[in-house]
Amino acid sequence: MNPHRKIGDVILQAEAISLSFGGVKALSNISLEVREHEILSIIGPNGAGKSSMLNVINGVYHPQQGHVVYRGKTRERMRPHEAARQGIARTFQNIALFKGMSVLDNIMTGRNLKMRANFIQQALYWGRAQREEIAQRAYVEKIIDFLEIQHIRKTPVGRLPYGLQKRVELARALAAEPSMLLLDEPMAGMNVEEKQDMCRFILDVNDEFGTTIVLIEHDMGVVMDISDRIVVLDYGKKIGDGSPDEIRVNPDVIAAYLGGSH
């Protein structure tokens, strides 16, 4: 861990979030805070509500109760594309790449928010449209270098192995220059080497770009190693919140993972 990295103030607060689908309570009364520049992990058994929590943060789901305060502003029913505009990017548990497009086009799509040319300029490929296309391509190439995927630039994403697809998805999220990055199981289904690569990239992103990272992961070794703070969910309730060392000895967490009386 880089000792010079400074964890800042709270930038996102989820306050008493409750979310249910019909009779199923996915989240009940959950509050959590995310501080600037930190790596926060959300862990918990399957069905604990981890992905639902990410979906609430970036506006895919709207909680029935509670609200999210992001950079001092309380959000009412925000759409995901508005979250993207405010600098929140994410990757998905099941890879959500654009299958019919090349790696380059996928990452370029992540830059769409930065493009201002209207469709007439684009149809003529003239003036601003052309300038933007080239300028954004230069930035995308930096991301491609950063994540070491130069060799597959023009390959359709559907042809890539799983580990590389995950990396391309991270690249697409990074292309938007997010200030907060939500990663939903970025290392699921990877072998040890791929996991090490992914850990290195996550730490590098956090270190070089200062991106705040909220991470869902099942590999406890990874979580304990790279997190600044961990939030533990079980059955839609928060049962733990603290540093890796605190979580390791938290009796509720141990009970949830190893079994015990509820």
């Binding site: 970036n58 594309h81 993207a84 505009r85 654009f98 299958k99 019919g100 992540g110 769409n112 928010l113």
Partner: peptide
């Protein structure tokens, strides 16, 4: 066309 949820999440 390929993945509408992901498209919206990246700001489309």
């Amino acid at each position: 066309r390929d993945m509408d949820v992901a498209a919206e999440v990246i700001g489309i």
